[in-house]
């Protein structure tokens, strides 16, 4: 089923290989330029009318963000995840709020949490969850939550732990002999 659809679509869109997760769930890479036309066709022709979610994954080692558009055909019980990759150095996505108005919320969150721009998306630059945030977008992989909390909060006084192995070595073999 999913494979038929993939075969059908890949003649006209630049698609990667189909990664089948379950009989009713697959993921595929899509060229950014083809995304919009593909979404429209999926929605209007193939029954993928429901946008389950839109989110990002930070592949920092590869220097890119992955946007995942999870499209769902409720009638046929099938989901297709479209993966679009953006340059992490200058991440700009294409807004789809005119196709699914609710996408505006996702895009606003992605702007705030990952620093991905979606020009033209309504209120995309308004603060969404964070208020007065000045640090880097916090859902990026290089934002260090531990360092942040250590700077922001203080540890409880008097806490000290011991590694069993090091503790035993210190007590039983203080000279560190082999």
């Amino acid at each position: 089923m999913m494979r038929d659809l993939h075969d059908h679509l890949k003649t006209r869109y630049r698609l990667g290989d189909l990664a089948e997760r379950r009989a009713n769930l697959a993921f595929v890479d899509v060229a950014r330029a083809d995304l919009r036309a593909l979404l429209v066709e999926l929605r209007d022709v193939h029954g993928f009318t429901h946008l389950s979610l839109l989110t990002a994954v930070d592949w920092i080692e590869e220097g890119r963000f992955q946007l995942t558009y999870l499209m769902n055909n409720r009638t046929a019980n099938r989901s297709l995840g479209l993966r679009v990759f953006l340059d992490r150095a200058d991440p700009v996505g294409d807004t789809i709020h005119d196709l699914w108005p609710t996408a505006a919320t996702y895009q606003r969150e992605l702007r705030e949490m990952f620093g991905i721009a979606f020009p033209g998306s309504p209120r995309v630059d308004e603060e969404f969850i964070l208020e007065g945030w000045t640090d880097m977008p916090p859902y990026r992989r290089d934002f260090d939550t531990l360092a942040y909390s250590q700077q922001t909060f203080s540890d409880r006084e008097g806490r000290e732990t011991h590694d069993p192995r090091a503790h035993m070595a210190k007590k039983l073999n203080p000279e560190g002999q082999r």
């Binding site: 806490r159 000290e160 732990t161 011991h162 590694d163 069993p164 192995r165 503790h167 035993m168 007590k171 039983l172």
Partner: peptide, 14 residues
């Protein structure tokens, strides 16, 4: 936290 309670012996860090 793991804290010392007794002297370590074989198989027990204390």
């Amino acid at each position: 936290d793991m804290v010392p309670v007794s002297a370590p012996v074989d198989g027990d860090s204390g």
